[in-house]
Computed example of a mutant assay.
Amino acid sequence: GETKGRGDSTPGRGGPVQFDPDGELQLEVGAENAIFVVCPRSLARASPVFKAMFYGGFSEARQATGNWRVKLPEDDPEALALLLNIIHGRFDKVPLVLVDSKIYKITVLSNKYDLTEALRPWAKRWTKAFVEHSANSAQVAWIAWELGDRVLLEDMLDDLLLDGSLNEDGDLVSGWDGQPLNSFEMLALMNVVEPLHKKRMEVLTSLLGPINQLLQSLLGVGEPRRRRCVCYSSQLGYSEANVCDAVVLSSLMKGLAKADLFPLPQPEDCPGPLQDFYDRIRGLGNSIKSLDINAGSRGGKRSDHTGCNPSKELLDKINWVWRHDRSVIDEKHKSHLEIQAKKSGFAPAEEDDPL
């Protein structure tokens, strides 16, 4: 028989929600079976997935007798209600501003039912409010993936890379909630968790490289560093240069110990966030010293060791690594983002064809 219900679209508050008063189909949504009365033809026109479900010979198709009901127990009722408002032209019930957690649930369903294009009038406005480091980077990364916003996706993946750390099992975990990224289903669909883990090891290796190279040269077991000592004493010049190296080595080791990085660790022994690691090694610049000598020498000239301090050169190398491209986006990612951007409106507008 006919199902009467409310005209508003707030699920779970009373009886069925009518998105179409003449709707032939009842959707039972979520764990609490919120009932939505909808027009199946409208859903089929908007979504090829719904079209296949309702008119493709599947179990969700209308039976010969009884009411037409379809169960969607895994879907979020509030998120689906918003999509149904869009599909049924009830635009006054679509918020212009949404928090990222709600947009995330909506985009999970827009991906499931191939409804990304339906979000086009609101997509840019919804994501405009996102501020760097202010939200759940994993969820926002998914939103960017679904809407084809490459800039936002790059930012969020970089947040996951810099703020994430390794748990006891060696899994990369979110700096936001401590959950392993490989347990986040939507990130798995994006195929970014393993690239993030690999990129993390690459960055750590590159950051440790210049420090290890300097240590090895000062210990005499690596390539000798270029000496910049200006020693005028013919009798003490050689030993003075060695003393300068010893001062640099000692201060470097003290700086590393102060940063809890001595002995110098291997990349796999650095489980903390990359951002914290970078901040610690950047502080080495204030720790490294060279020989400070005031003794006189030949012709009244003094030895000069101010150019022996390697801190600037070391920090230049470290900062270059840090500024270097950390992107994990590959060509397959780019291709997907281009397709989604055309659906959502994030792609640049194409010029009209000439008449």
Score class of each variant (00 low, 15 high):
residue 223 E to Q: 13
residue 224 P to G: 02
residue 161 L to C: 12
residue 201 M to W: 01
residue 97 V to H: 09
residue 175 G to L: 14
residue 350 E to M: 10
residue 86 I to H: 11
residue 1 G to P: 04
residue 124 K to L: 05
residue 69 R to A: 05
residue 260 D to L: 09
residue 26 Q to G: 09
residue 186 M to Y: 07
residue 236 L to D: 07
residue 340 Q to E: 15
residue 4 K to S: 09
residue 33 N to Y: 07
residue 61 A to I: 08
residue 50 F to Q: 04
residue 340 Q to C: 13
residue 316 D to S: 10
residue 103 I to S: 00
residue 134 S to P: 00
residue 270 C to A: 02
residue 299 G to P: 00
residue 97 V to D: 10
residue 128 K to H: 10
residue 90 R to K: 15
residue 136 N to P: 14
residue 94 V to N: 04
residue 253 M to H: 03
residue 182 N to S: 05
residue 33 N to R: 15
residue 110 S to N: 10
residue 118 A to W: 02
residue 226 R to P: 00
residue 188 A to F: 05
residue 16 P to A: 15
residue 281 I to M: 02
residue 188 A to G: 07
residue 130 F to M: 06
residue 339 I to E: 12
residue 303 S to N: 13
residue 301 K to Q: 13
residue 187 L to E: 03
residue 143 I to C: 14
residue 217 S to Y: 00
residue 115 L to N: 01
residue 299 G to Q: 14
residue 1 G to N: 08
residue 218 L to M: 08
residue 34 A to T: 12
residue 6 R to G: 03
residue 349 A to Y: 07
residue 191 N to R: 11
residue 252 L to W: 01
residue 24 E to M: 11
residue 252 L to H: 03
residue 348 P to C: 11
residue 291 L to C: 10
residue 141 A to M: 05
residue 107 T to S: 06
residue 205 T to P: 00
residue 230 V to G: 00
residue 262 F to W: 15
residue 159 D to S: 08
residue 13 R to E: 13
residue 217 S to E: 01
residue 220 G to T: 09
residue 322 W to P: 02
residue 294 N to T: 14
residue 174 S to W: 10
residue 63 Q to H: 12
residue 346 F to M: 12
residue 185 E to P: 05
residue 282 R to N: 09
residue 186 M to I: 06
residue 261 L to T: 02
residue 145 W to F: 04
residue 210 P to E: 07
residue 179 Q to C: 11
residue 275 Q to I: 12
residue 169 D to T: 14
residue 204 L to P: 01
residue 202 E to C: 06
residue 184 F to I: 15
residue 238 Y to G: 08
residue 256 L to D: 00
residue 281 I to H: 04
residue 122 W to E: 00
residue 284 L to I: 10
residue 106 I to L: 10
residue 50 F to C: 03
residue 190 M to N: 07
residue 34 A to Q: 05
residue 5 G to E: 05
residue 194 E to N: 07
residue 114 D to Q: 04
residue 193 V to L: 07
residue 101 S to C: 08
residue 133 H to E: 15
residue 255 G to I: 02
residue 3 T to I: 13
residue 92 D to S: 14
residue 145 W to K: 08
residue 323 R to Y: 13
residue 44 A to N: 06
residue 94 V to D: 01
residue 96 L to K: 15
residue 226 R to V: 12
residue 288 I to K: 03
residue 209 G to L: 03
residue 68 W to Y: 13
residue 277 F to I: 02
residue 1 G to V: 09
residue 5 G to Q: 15
residue 114 D to W: 00
residue 216 Q to C: 08
residue 66 G to K: 14
residue 16 P to E: 02
residue 322 W to F: 11
residue 144 A to T: 09
residue 234 S to V: 12
residue 317 K to H: 09
residue 26 Q to R: 14
residue 66 G to Y: 04
residue 335 S to W: 09
residue 258 K to P: 03
residue 81 A to V: 12
residue 217 S to Q: 03
residue 272 G to F: 07
residue 196 L to S: 05
residue 117 E to L: 06
residue 157 L to V: 09
residue 177 D to Y: 05
residue 70 V to W: 01
